[in-house]
Design a protein around this nucleic acid. Structure first.
Lengths: 217, 217
DNA sequence: ATGGTCCTCCAATCATCTTTGGAATACTGT
DNA sequence: ACAGTATTCCAAAGATGATTGGAGGACCAT
């Protein structure tokens, strides 16, 4: 006990989790899984990876026990092992964003910096006071799996066709998966281009759920 | 904006932090740095690494902006870039411990599982009610850099010689650096072997500080 | 059983990370 | 200037990880 080999072994065990987080591809998979369970095939397509490559990365995550699997017929569904994993993932992103200037510029290159954001508290305020309509611009099945109470599902794909159904005399607050999801940014751009007053939630459903705010199903 | 290359670039940036956490050696260095600033030489000796190896790992951490340096004469002091880094580090350890059975067995091999632990709240209770004396068994300079209010500095090295100075009619609660620090375990074993009633704080100074409990200097 | 689907395993290649000793840099004290 | 100390840089070797295509395993429908 207390010797060097045992200490090295312990820290090498901790590093298994670090290693699992040491690839952009795997972080992208975790980002997808943070929204709910997915099949290998769906993950590979979403992350634009070869099937075997995706499978290999998922095995890495599985060996670190960050994800678990469930079989349904010939399909295998992966999901995060628990909210602690989602918490670790979001904290890693936050630290990266706070510490690395390159993350900020990569974020702006991907998301843009031309849309206005509100915090979760501000969103709640605006909904309570009736100043804003909240729309969930994720795909319909993700809305169905859990959403902000009172939000309306308007998948980004359908937004242009459904403009008429959205109140013209209110602010519209769009949200999507999380702080680095592009959907709400594009929704706000589209709405603004059509003369609406639109804002986005600064983060998204992932952070909402982890903050233990109420979730409707 | 919103294209694949930009998304890949963003997640690869996040992965820089993951990569920094992907080595047991680097996690060991972070563990040391979580206690305060250290020189390269001191870190290399503590972690039992070659000087150039330690320097290379520190450069990796520095490029991920998880640590910052300060020069004082010919020495260079490294320290964590902020408490968010310490928080990420402790969360990684917690997730690893909760998820990986191998971590638990490596922990028991290193620390043992023969000593009784109390939570931070229980420690505070025992101190307020006068039931317990709290001793800080870290090296004296770490005590000097910040400790639990009311705790007495009794470095593990000196504990055997200072037994007489510790009340025999009270519980003794020992604490050290953090949840995976061996010092408090050894202190409790030594005290118990001398017939004292001894417990250890389940974690240590690191988690105390991150929980924003009061720190005395 | 058979064919089809979905996924994992395997093996080979390539890329990246780790470790090391020796040289180079930066500073201090005399 | 010079010797001494602390650290980083460099280059080479070995170790580990990523990616790919093809084979194999598990399951379903007929």
């Amino acid at each position: 006990m207390g010797d060097r080999d045992a200490k090295t072994a312990l820290f090498d065990q901790f590093a298994r989790v670090g290693k699992a987080l040491a690839s952009g591809k795997r972080l992208e998979l975790l980002d997808l899984l943070a929204q709910g369970e997915r099949t290998v095939d769906a993950l590979a397509k979403s992350a634009e990876l070869g099937l075997t490559t995706a499978s290999a990365h998922l095995q890495t995550l599985k060996q670190a026990n960050l994800v678990v699997t469930r079989r349904e017929g010939t399909k295998i569904f992966y999901r995060l092992a628990g909210d602690d994993v989602a918490q670790l993932f979001t904290l890693l992103r936050t630290v990266a964003d706070d510490r690395l200037p390159d993350v900020r510029s990569a974020r702006e290159a991907y998301l843009g910096d031309d849309t206005e954001a509100v915090s979760r508290a501000e969103l709640l305020d605006r909904v309570r006071s009736g100043r804003a309509t909240v729309i969930d611009v994720r795909p319909a099945e993700e809305f169905a799996a859990g959403h902000i109470p009172g939000a309306v599902s308007v998948p980004l794909d359908e937004l242009a066709d459904r403009l008429a159904g959205l109140p013209a005399d209110q602010e519209i607050v769009a949200y999507c998966r999380g702080a680095y999801c592009v959907l709400s940014h594009e929704a706000v751009r589209l709405l603004t281009a059509h003369g609406r007053t639109a804002l986005r939630l600064a983060d998204g459903m992932l952070e909402w759920r982890l903050a233990e705010l109420p979730v409707a199903v």
